[in-house]
Design a binder for these strands. Structure first.
Length: 675
DNA sequence: CCAGCCGTAAACATGA
DNA sequence: ATCATGTTTACGGCTG
């Protein structure tokens, strides 16, 4: 091609230019680089706690992965890890108890920064997003539960009222105890919820989302009020014990309730209650007397252990727990203080959460609006079916969520398989991963990840961890004709990645640069102008370099060089030999990991092809994968090319239209263009 | 430390 | 003259 000979030409002209441009370059590099300053946050000032938080997530990911690996491989994994990025994780692991008490909060900005830095892999992010959705559900459940609690509370009080004959002292005591427990329960629930939210580091509020129980609960629990509450509770307690004064307990209730009442309240004082301290819950179901017994589940009790912060005393049964609760966590200064602390923590978290929610909402709104902005109508490659992809991805996510909320890696449950397989497959052809952001051996991000996070990349301005070359190739291969004009490539970029909706000059230049630079991109003159195609052979040629560090692997491949041989075995062996544990695991059945395996295999094929560069098997545009493919368990095609013909649908499915105009086609199942 | 890859910037050429 | 498209060179960062 031109490039080959072009290198020597134009040396004189550029020599001069370079003299000056070089100088400029130095200056500008030193000062500011727009692309970076936007995308990759400056020296992130995320607090240690934040980091720890993120790293906890990462750790969970790692742990989950490792669980799936052979021991030997585990060791290799850690050995392979880039010491820079990952080695701090263990040290920063935060014990849950600490995490609970530490108001660690990540602001949306920080989150974005983290995202930009690829501290979290897209996969992890996806999982996080999914978890948020699960949390939504959880919130609703909490709300329900909260209502129930209130009903029960009311019920108890009513019962006491009716049984007004019992000695006042006893009545008051019971009432107070009940109240205490309710309070604790609510508090604990709230806290748990918040913590879980907070641990996610993210919280999305969907437009339609109701304003959740959080508010009523929280707003009634301002530290000062709490203090007051406890004061009164304590005094009531004492008074009651000594004098049996009914009114103190009334005051207590009143205080508690009224403190929360002014703000939004689901709880208010029932006027009639003044005589006996009855609580009235202003909920629709207020009047309904459900006779549900208090379940033996207590927020402070679980798995035979007292969950009072810092306690963890073992209680064999619920009764003993109650005993323990009343004896060890009675109304004393200590408990009060602990409770106060807890409340403050919760309150802080809530405040922060509210803020972050708002920001996040604004961000999302902003992005969405942006996305709807008319873009230069790109020639619809095979966008039609893309819808399918996005849809499936979003549908699948909630389901997978509950399964492994904290283990990003494992999230791959068969459930998600259906749709995501398609998605995954297609994108997964993206190929090389930008090592800069994620070492594939460390944090394997495959196209599968992209596919799964397609929506994410479309809407979040996060730089995709793929090289320009890979992306360009992907764009071209996704097109029906396997060829695109430069402008169409641009459009693909902007369509698929929010990140590329900014700094157009920069990345467009990079695209052009890559097109020209890499032999794998072939310019074909056309009637209308010129289009770009991919020379797959060339593309594969350059890939082996990535695994060049694994000579044994290549060797292994050469040895087993019949592609059709049980590749699984060969792969696994070689992988084991070359510290690529994930692939092995992947090929063993984990769907998601399977995708990774595919990605890897693709790379391996590249390597193989490189090693046996003149092998007859490899015809242009067709990687050895084809041969390999059948051998592999029900794995999706690695390459789009493989998907040609009947499989083209699969490939196509991947293209998701994104945010804009393309949406209209969303319901179209497939793209008939493909043939 | 070195080589290679990658991204970025920029100069320049060419054609519409 | 302007813009889109291509080509080429240079340089810094990262990784193995």
């Amino acid at each position: 091609m031109m490039q080959e000979s072009g290198t020597e030409t134009k040396s004189n002209g550029s020599a001069i230019q370079n003299g000056s441009s070089g100088g400029n370059h130095l200056l500008e590099c030193g000062s500011l680089r727009e692309g970076r300053s936007n995308g990759e946050a400056p020296a992130v000032d995320v607090g240690t706690a934040d980091l720890a938080h993120v790293q906890q997530q990462q750790q969970a990911l790692q742990v989950a992965r490792q669980l799936l690996l052979h021991q030997q491989q585990q060791q290799q994994v850690s050995g392979l890890k880039s010491p820079k990025r990952n080695d701090k994780q263990p040290a920063l692991q935060v014990p849950v108890s600490v995490a609970m008490m530490t108001p660690q909060v990540i602001t949306p900005q920080q989150m974005q920064q983290i995202l930009q830095q690829q501290v979290l892999s897209p996969q992890q992010l996806q999982v996080l997003l999914q978890q948020q959705q699960a949390l939504m559900l959880q919130q609703q459940q909490l709300q329900e539960f909260y209502k129930k609690q209130q009903e029960q509370l009311q019920l108890q009080l009513l019962q006491q009222q009716h049984a007004g004959k019992q000695p006042k002292e006893q009545q008051v005591a019971t009432q107070q105890l009940a109240f205490q427990q309710q309070l604790l329960q609510m508090q604990q629930l709230q806290q748990q919820h918040l913590l879980s939210l907070q641990r996610q580091g993210l919280l999305t509020i969907q437009p339609g989302q109701p304003a959740l129980p959080l508010q009523p609960l929280t707003q009634g629990m301002i530290p000062t009020e709490l203090q007051q509450l406890w004061k009164e509770v304590t005094s009531a307690h004492t008074t009651e014990e000594t004098t049996g004064n009914n009114h103190s307990s009334l005051d207590l209730t009143t205080t508690c309730v009224s403190s929360s009442a002014p703000s939004k309240t689901s709880l208010i004082m029932n006027p009639h209650a003044s005589t006996n301290g009855q609580l009235s819950v202003h909920t629709p179901k207020r009047e309904s007397l459900s006779h549900e017994e208090h379940p033996h589940s207590h927020p402070l009790y679980g798995h035979g252990v007292c969950k009072w912060p810092g306690c963890e005393a073992v209680c064999e049964d619920f009764q003993s727990f109650l005993k323990h609760l009343n004896s060890e966590h009675a109304l004393d200064d200590r408990s009060t203080a602990q409770c106060r602390v807890q409340m403050q923590v919760v309150q802080q978290l809530e405040l922060q959460l509210a803020k972050d929610k708002e920001r996040l909402q604004a961000m999302m709104t902003h992005l969405h609006v942006k996305s709807t902005e008319p873009k230069t109508a790109p020639q619809p490659l095979n966008l039609v079916s893309s819808v399918t992809l996005s849809k499936s991805a979003s549908e699948a996510s909630p389901q997978s969520l509950p399964h492994t909320p904290t283990t990003p890696t494992a999230p791959i449950t068969p459930v998600t398989q259906g749709p995501s397989v398609i998605t995954t497959t297609s994108m997964h052809t993206v190929g090389p991963i930008r090592r800069r952001y994620s070492d594939k051996y460390n944090v394997p991000i495959s196209s599968a990840d992209i596919a799964q996070n397609q929506e994410f990349y479309k809407n979040a301005e996060v730089r995709p961890p793929f090289t320009y070359a890979s992306l360009i190739r992907q764009a071209i291969l996704e097109s029906p004709e396997k060829q695109l004009t430069l402008n169409e490539i641009y459009n693909w970029f902007t369509r698929m990645f929010a990140y590329f909706r900014r700094n157009a000059a920069t990345w467009k230049n990079a695209v052009r640069h890559n097109l020209s630079l890499h032999k794998c991109f072939v310019r074909v003159e056309n009637v209308k102008g010129a289009v770009w195609t991919v020379d797959e052979v060339e593309f594969q040629k350059r890939r082996p370099q990535k695994i060049s560090g694994n000579p044994s692997l290549i060797k292994n491949m050469q040895t087993s060089h019949a592609y059709c041989t049980p590749l699984n075995a060969a792969l696994q062996a070689s992988m084991a030999e070359n510290s690529i544990p994930l692939y092995t695991t992947a090929s063993m059945g984990n769907p998601t990991l399977g995708n990774l395996a595919s990605a890897i295999r693709e790379e391996l094929n590249g390597a193989m092809e490189h090693a046996n560069s003149n092998e007859s098997d490899s015809s242009p545009g067709r990687s050895p994968l084809q041969a390999v493919h059948p051998v592999h368990v029900k794995e999706e095609p690695l390459d789009p090319e493989e998907a040609e013909g009947p499989l083209s649908l699969v490939t196509t499915a991947n293209h998701s239209p994104d945010f804009d105009h393309d949406r209209d086609y969303e319901d179209e199942p497939v793209n008939e263009d493909m043939e």
